[in-house]
Write a protein that binds this DNA or RNA. Structure first.
Length: 574
RNA sequence: CGGGGCGUAGCGUAGUGGCUAGCGCGCCUGCUUUGGGAGCAGGAGACCGGAGGUUCGAAUCCUCUCGCCCCGACCA
């Protein structure tokens, strides 16, 4: 039982000045967490109880699925990360440190290497597979900019699992088992979420889905089709390409368009000189970039920007992309800034990428590769060649759903889980093989699955809070029932305590406000701020042998006789 | 790393060259009060983020520095 009279808790009346998002503000105000450095938080009793409730649910669902828990150190040696190249590839986001002998260590940002090595050390037969291991561990990432309180910290707790299989089919099966376990976990946590297809990005691998909890303050943007349920991270959103018959398009024509280095100025001149009706969507934007040192161009319709994040995620085999700068133009005199067109790309050795919207047969106004000149009727496939199609244009609300063509919406969310089929990258790098039936060594294929445990505290707070405070689902709340005793007589305090014992005997957790010196108003405000699902008030109506029951979420109030109160409360919680 | 903002008591803040740094919340003591962040009286608590400088005099002006928050870049 948590007794408010002795609980290590001080609630704040004012919002902390450095907290912006609701979860951060309320978790601080209600005395759940305190910031100790940028992106690093301490958990106070209420916060830690809530945290452990979430951790418990995650653990239970992992165990039910047959995954086995292990525990690795957070402090790790450099070598394994050297072998997979991540000591250097992870860059400045990795917390590195040295021991007294000058040996390099790191604080684990994720644990693929050590899991792989552990399995390698123990298992060597296909008969031992499939296998799924998990741990719940503190992770460290020196984020360039920690933000939003608990949502993106530099120290956070994550449940990460890894599956090990002999075959690709086995991997899919393990992946699906995790997917099921995640659904059960997040359902129990009371989170609303969407499962969206994602690109696996820096980690490599193929199939990948994210569990996103929609909320205003989320930092992930995703696309959702309300009609058919298609959901995808913007990076992973596919654009359906519709080729066009161009046989009737007049031949390419170069025209003078003085002082039109931008799409806007170009459209203006086109409409004044070549009849009206031109819009930016009729023009072709030719964005030059340097990809791993080579010049590439990316074509998108003139009314859209190139989404560099999306492009980067979809460019296969390219590590680093940056925009052309002045000095790049200076080095490449054939590229006329503001008047670039794809017509001569081949000649200059420029690889041409195009968003699928720039479909074969479509006709455009684009640069003529000559200052103050543009070309009309430039047809894809006739006047220029696209080397690769890549989803690169910004995604907008109303774009066509790739599966049913209805307009999609765009929403924000917090990423609470990520599952993906890692494949053989780490097993290969660390030489994790098992002998198959024929006695031949075969590289194991892996899956990797994460749940942000500490982040889930914030995500639930974001989705469930209201104007007056936190508002937890029963299973994660610090207590199922928050009993407030009011008045200066002993009676309400005695009745409240008795009820608390009854509830505990019935398997419910209880927080009892037994403070003698706090006024009823303070107790009510605190109860609402702390956010336990049922608030019980023992006070005035005790004269008639009654107590008051309130449901925090709905604000519903009812009365119950003291004798039947426990049963009523248990019923309310069911 | 670029842009913006902010560091004054545990928390929220006022104070733009002049007396002993002010207020609210919280905390301590006493009395009163007990169904919506109570009232009165008394009290403790601040080297004004740090260093250097200008000045008769600096929380206040200048330089440097450290830290924090937000937007972007980056990252999952």
């Amino acid at each position: 039982m948590l007794r408010m009279s002795s609980l290590f808790l001080r609630t704040l009346r004012d919002d902390p000045a450095d907290a912006d998002v609701a979860s951060h503000r309320l978790l601080v105000r209600a005395g759940y967490v305190r910031r100790i450095a940028s992106g690093i938080y301490s958990w106070l009793p209420l916060g830690y109880i809530t945290f452990r409730n979430i951790e418990r649910i995650v653990r239970e669902e992992m165990d039910k699925a047959g995954f086995q828990e292990v525990h690795f150190p957070a402090l790790l040696p450099r070598e394994p990360y050297e072998e997979t190249n991540r000591w250097s590839e992870y860059g400045p986001d990795l917390f590195r440190l040295q021991d007294r002998k000058g040996g390099d260590y790191l604080l684990g940002p994720t644990h693929e290497e050590v899991f792989t090595l552990m399995v390698k050390g123990e298992y060597s037969s296909y008969k031992d597979l499939p296998l799924s291991l998990y741990q719940i561990q503190t992770k460290y990432r020196d984020e360039p900019r920690p933000r939003s309180g608990i949502i993106r910290g530099r120290e956070f707790v994550m449940k990460d699992s890894y599956s090990f299989d002999l075959t690709d089919e086995g991997l899919v099966e393990s992946y699906n088992k995790h997917r099921e376990a995640y659904i059960k976990t997040f359902d129990r946590l009371g989170l609303q979420y969407n499962i969206v297809s994602a690109v696996s990005g820096a980690m490599g691998g193929s199939g990948s889905e994210e569990f996103l909890a929609p909320c205003e303050t989320g930092e992930d943007t995703y696309v959702l089709c309300e009609k058919c349920g298609y959901a995808a991270n913007v990076e992973a959103m596919k654009t359906v390409q519709v080729p066009v018959d161009s046989s009737a398009t007049p031949p390419l024509e170069v025209v003078d368009t003085p002082n039109t280095p931008t799409i806007d100025t170009l459209v203006g001149v086109l409409n004044s000189q070549f009849g009206s009706g031109f819009t930016s969507a009729d023009t072709l934007k030719n964005v030059l970039l340097v990809a791993d040192g080579k010049t590439i161009s990316v074509l998108v319709p003139g009314d859209r920007e190139v989404d560099l994040k999306r492009l980067g995620a979809n460019l296969v085999g390219i590590k680093e992309v940056r925009l052309f700068e002045e000095e790049d133009f200076a080095k490449n005199p054939a590229m006329v800034k503001g008047y670039v067109g794809p017509q001569d790309a081949k000649k200059h050795g420029v690889t041409v990428y195009a968003d699928p919207r720039v479909a074969p047969g479509t006709s455009w106004v684009t640069g003529a590769n000559k200052k103050n000149c543009h070309a009309l009727n430039v047809v894809n496939g006739r006047d220029f060649t696209v080397d690769h199609y890549v989803d690169a244009a910004e995604v907008r609300k109303g774009d066509a759903c790739p599966s049913c063509a209805s307009p999609v919406i765009i929403d924000r969310a917090i990423e609470i889980g990520h599952i993906f089929q890692l494949g053989r990258k780490y097993a290969e790098a660390l030489n994790l093989t098992v002998l198959d039936k024929d006695g031949k060594a075969r590289v194991v294929t892996m899956g990797s699955y994460g749940i942000g445990v500490s982040r889930a505290v914030a995500a639930i707070a974001e989705q469930t809070h209201d104007e007056i405070g936190l508002c937890w689902p029963a299973e994660v709340a610090p207590a199922h029932v928050h009993i407030v005793a009011t008045g200066k007589e002993d009676a309400p305090f005695d009745v409240a305590e008795k009820l608390a014992f009854q509830l505990e005997a019935a398997g419910k957790t209880v927080m009892l406000d037994d403070r003698r010196d706090a006024s009823p108003g303070v107790k009510f405000k605190d109860a609402e701020l702390i956010g336990n699902p049922i608030i019980v008030v023992v006070g005035k109506s005790l004269a008639e042998g009654k107590i008051e029951l309130r449901v925090r979420r709905t604000g519903e109030r009812s009365e119950a006789l003291v004798e039947s109160a426990c049963a009523e409360i248990v019923k309310l919680l069911a």
